[in-house]
Amino acid sequence: MKKRILIIEDNPMVVKSLEFKLTKDGYDVVVAEDGRKALEILKEDDAIELVITDLMLPYITGTELIEHIRNNTPTMPIIVLSTSNQEEIITDAFMMGVNDFITKPFSPNELSLRVKRTIESH
């Protein structure tokens, strides 16, 4: 059975690329374009095995979302999508227990390896 990944990202090109690569790698991909939608999906879909999230999202910030996930599903692995100049936010995210981060635009092979490693270690 395919492992399911929730992508939370509001840039359509980034979403398309992540979907393309992860689907090719054999994952089932679900997309939320904002934090509110992500929380709805997480509430209804208990087959999600990994969350990949941007930090600057509409309605609910990435850090608020991470905090919510950590409070409700503490073992859910989380990979953060970041851009430059976000060192402080990334540090906060690590303090909140995110498992890894990937810089946008991501390196395709690195994405594959980091996703595989994160899922396998949980």
């Binding site: 509001d10 840039n11 090109m13 980034v14 690329s17 600057m56 851009t83 946008k104 635009p105």
Partner: peptide, 8 residues
């Protein structure tokens, strides 16, 4: 939001 689109 649009920065990665240019990069890609």
């Amino acid at each position: 939001n649009i920065k990665p689109s240019f990069s890609m």
